[in-house]
Each structure stands twice: as C-alpha cells, then as structure tokens.
C-alpha cells in the first residue's frame, strides 16, 4: 500500500465535490486503535460526507483513506467489503429491521458467512442464542428480545442499531448523531454505553449535542466547510475563537 502508518484510520488530503460544491476540502483525520473521537461542526460541514467516504458510499475525488495501519486502501472497496473489514456504521436516522424481532436483528448483524447460499441452507442459523443475549444486555434491551423492532421507541431503536454494530464486532464504529431525539436520561445512558463500547472498540461519534460530547470525555474535532477547523480537548475546542464564531455562537 501507499503509506505505512500506525493509525487505525488515516484520512489525508481528502477532497469530495458534488456538482461543484466542495463537501470536503483536504480533510485530514487520524485515529489510533482504541481512540474515541467526537466530530462536531455546523450543518454542511462535511460530517456525514466523511462517514460516507470511510464506509465506501462516496468515492473521494482525491486523497488517502487508509485503514488498519495503512494496510487497506478503503477507496478500493465497496460498502459490503468495508463492513467485512471491520468498520460498522450507525446512521443519523435510526435504521433497524422493523419487521424483525430484536433477536433476528442481532442475528443478521452477527459475524459469519454472508452469502445467499449459506443463508438459504442454514449454516447461519447455528449461532448461539447466548451471544445474542449478551449483545442485547449491553444495550439494555434484553427484556424486549422477542418484540418486533418496529415497536421500539426512537431512542431504543438507536440502541438497537448500536447493538447491531457491536454484534458485527467491528474494529471501528462510526456513530452518526446517536442522541438526536433522545430524552436527557436516554442521552446519559447512551454516553455511558459508548464509553463502555470504547473499551474494546475504536469509536467515532458525530454529534451536535455539546452536553453529550462533554459527557463522552474524549478528543474533539470540529469541522467547517469540509476541513478541520480545530482539534483537541473539548475545553480547548470550545474556547477556540473560530469555533465559537462559526458553530457555537457567542
């Protein structure tokens, strides 16, 4: 591969444009294994586009997008391959399989063969219920295991989606606005949950809620107009002149 890095995720000089609109301009972001990183920034700063680039949904016009110590060039893989490589993603809008039970939701997410043939002839079915329960326990949904996902509240769907990511057992989790539409108590629980997950996984969280970001207690990157405006501790970033000007407001 092009570069040897010691980073789990390495983005450098990434540019993306849509019909002349530059969504990302030479964006740089480096994450070591075990990190937790919060990404903040105003609407249109390029947060979701960055996620799209990492997960293979959008191809960058230029720049390096490397994974696992620079051994994998993510721009050469599609979504399914990137998911297999160990990158999980939670969408802005909670996206779960509403007509499946929670158990089936997790079952589908658990690591294992993913081709149609083994799905049809049952090798996938031999996954221990133990493992499923563990994951649901972690996101505090074990008591609803046999319910349909469609019956869950908005916040619970967010958690279920996080649980599905955990079941995938990825090296890197990308979490897009996990607390949007949550009550304060739910937000609190979610922050706790993510810190817990961070013990075994590298996590990137995109969020607007500064209260929540503070609760995550991690390094913060502020994006603006497609590039990094400031990076550092929450206090340092929150005190940054430019950040205050374009995002937080005076």
């Amino acid at each position: 591969m092009e570069k040897r890095t010691n980073a789990l995720l390495y983005l450098d000089g990434v540019n993306v444009s849509f019909d002349g609109f530059k969504a990302l301009r030479s964006l740089t972001l480096i994450l070591a294994a075990g990190d937790m990183r919060a990404i903040i920034g105003p609407n249109g700063a390029g947060k979701t586009t960055m996620m799209d680039v990492i997960t293979g949904k959008t191809k960058p016009d230029s720049g390096d997008v490397l994974f696992a110590d620079g051994s994998v060039d993510l721009t050469r893989h599609d979504e399914a391959e990137i998911a297999e490589l160990g990158i999980g993603r939670k969408f802005q809008k909670p996206t779960v399989f509403e007509s499946h039970t929670l158990v089936d939701n997790i079952l589908l997410a658990l690591a294992g063969r993913r081709d149609p043939f083994s799905a049809l002839f049952g090798t996938r079915a031999r996954i221990s219920p133990q493992r499923i329960r563990e994951v649901l326990d972690k996101v505090r949904l074990a008591d609803k295991a046999e319910r349909l996902a469609g019956e869950l509240s908005h916040g619970q769907k967010q958690w279920l989606e996080i649980a599905m990511l955990l079941a995938q057992n990825p090296k890197l989790l990308l979490v897009d606005e996990p607390v949007a539409g949550m009550t304060d108590a739910e937000t609190e629980t979610t922050a706790e949950l993510l810190r817990e997950i961070n013990r075994d996984h590298t996590v990137v969280v995109v969020e607007h809620d500064m209260h929540f970001v503070r609760a995550l207690d991690c390094r913060v990157t502020c994006l603006h107009e497609g590039s990094v405006l400031a990076e550092g501790t929450i206090d340092a970033v929150a005190a940054n002149e430019r950040v205050v000007e374009v995002y937080l407001g005076r």
Partner: peptide, 23 residues
Amino acid sequence: SSFGKVLIAIRDAESRVRFLGYR
C-alpha cells in the same frame, strides 16, 4: 430461512444490510 430474513431486512432497510456486510 436466514436468506428470507435478509430479504425482509433488505426490504425494510437496504443500506443497513449493506453496511452489515451483506452483498
């Protein structure tokens, strides 16, 4: 079968299935 479960999952949330690593 699990195949059918994936089908229903695709019907309900195609991109989720894709990001879970299914083709």
